[in-house]
Every structure is written in structure tokens, then in C-alpha cells.
Design a protein around this nucleic acid. Structure first.
Lengths: 133, 133
DNA sequence: GCTTGAACCTCAAGTGGCTTGAGGGCGTAG
DNA sequence: CTACGCCCTCAAGCCACTTGAGGTTCAAGC
């Protein structure tokens, strides 16, 4: 199978497949007339990569995951990767929630206190919680 | 004031200040003996940029915000920027929550169904919701 | 056998928001 | 006059790709 077929089979774009090969995430396949030729194993590996990217694992983490798959390490290792990832997702959510609260507070502060003043005096743009009052 | 003093006054690193100048976010200051010399207005502008970065506005958005400040446009413009930003924050939170649910489900699925199998068969790494059953 | 068009190839640069490093110049205190 | 800290420019690195230029190979139709 050629690269375009592999791309359709896995949902990974052709340039991305070549990119994965260039960084060593995929092993370079055989060539026929200069063109890459893939087998069914490549579909499995690339589908796994795609699945992990859908879960937003980094390519570095995916590299580790692939290694643990190829070595048939115990499932617990996989779970550790997923738990680490889950922690970083939760941390990011917490950060964004704080940010959401802050920005939402500024927007409503602008509505109640700015009373149609100009941008330089807007509550939203004040370094601390100073007001345009 | 030299760049190091400006950096300390605003909490923005020296290379970052030079970077902001290079992309046109800060106007190039006067020079003395080849070295940048800043005034109090620069502290104000850079502090505003810092504040907006703390709120996670993109540099593109900050560029627009600075323009609205310099033109003394009405506060409502600022609020529009903040509201757009708030929407994108909320969208991102929603995406991350979905991801959190998915990954958390996979981790607990691994705990209950994988029963110590190997990585290639782990629930976490299966493309669909197939199990190692 | 020849042409056409799709799919393939490599290499380089762009995205965002910086950071880091190399290799050198300026300013001031002792 | 030397030492040290601060300053300068330019280039490359980070992440995960995407986009583009310019050229080659393959399969189908005539």
C-alpha cells in the first residue's frame, strides 16, 4: 500500500506521516521506485499513534507508549502514562477555570463600573483591580 | 532607563522585550551608544502587554488592544475583545473536560477490565471501545 | 508508444511565543 | 587598565504540524 492509502486508512495526513518518519516515530518503510510501500502492521502502528493523538498525548509520550507496546510491557505501564496525562489535563483545566473567572469578572466589572469610558481607562486593562472611578 | 531596568519594572524578560520590538509590538526606542533607552511611557505600554499576556491574550489580540488604547476608542471595544477571549477560553475548557472524561474512563476501564494484561491489549490503547475481553 | 493527470518525492519555511546560545561591544568601579 | 555586568545581533530550538515550490513516478486512455 502506498502512502495515500495508508493516510486514508488511518485518518493521518500524508505530510504528517512523512513528518512522523522524519522524527523517528515511524520506521522508514520499503521503497518501490522511490515511493514508500507500507504493510498492514504500519496501519496498526499509525492507527495507535492517531488514537493517542486524539487523546492529546505528546509525540514524546507516544514514542514511549509505542516502545511499551512493542516490548509487550504490562498494562500497568500504559495506565501510568494515562494517569500522568490525566493529571496534566486536570491541571490545565484548573488553570483555565481560574482564567475564566478572572476574565469573566473583568467583563462584568467593565459593564457595571466603566460606564462607557475609553479603552485606556477600562477596568479590563488595569494592571491591578484599580477602577476608572 | 536601560532594557534591564524596564524588564525588572514590568516583569517581562529582556529577550522578550527585544522580541516584542522585532515583531513590531513595541516601537523601537532611542539609542545611546547602541543601547536601547526607554522612558516611563514604555513602562506603561509594556505593563499593559504583560497584563494582557497574564490574561492569555494572543500577541495579535494585544496588538489590536494597544491600537484601541492609543486611539482612545470606547471601552465597549475592549469588552468585545475580552468577550471573544472568554468564549475561546470556555471552548477550550469544554474540549478539555470532554478529554478528561474520556481519559478518566479509559483509566478506570483498564483497572476493571484489563486485569494485568499487556500494553498492546490494554483498553486505553484500543482504537474504539473494544476490550481485551 | 505517448500523453495526461493524480499521486508521489524532497527540501525549506511558516505557525506562536518565546528561550537559549554564540560571539562580541559598552559602561563603570577599582 | 582590567574586570565584570550589562548590553548588542543573529541564529537556532521548542511543538506538531502545514504549506509551498519544484520535480518524479505511476496508471489509464488513445
Amino acid at each position: 500500500m502506498r502512502i495515500g492509502v495508508l493516510a486514508k486508512a488511518t485518518g493521518v495526513s500524508v505530510p504528517t506521516i512523512r513528518y512522523y518518519e522524519s522524527i523517528g516515530l515511524l520506521t522508514p518503510p520499503a521503497r518501490q521506485g522511490g515511493q514508500r510501500v507500507y504493510g498492514s502492521e504500519d496501519v496498526k502502528v499509525l492507527s495507535l499513534i492517531r488514537h493517542c493523538r486524539d487523546l492529546d498525548f505528546s509525540l514524546d509520550a507516544i514514542s514511549d507508549i509505542l516502545a511499551s507496546v512493542q516490548r509487550r510491557l504490562p498494562c500497568s505501564d500504559t495506565k501510568v502514562f494515562a494517569e500522568q496525562h490525566l493529571r496534566s489535563i486536570r491541571k490545565k483545566i484548573a488553570e483555565l477555570r481560574t482564567l475564566e473567572t478572572t476574565v469573566a469578572g473583568l467583563v462584568s466589572g467593565c459593564e457595571t463600573t466603566c460606564c462607557g469610558s475609553t479603552a485606556p481607562d477600562c477596568v479590563i486593562l488595569q494592571p491591578s483591580q484599580a477602577c476608572c472611578g
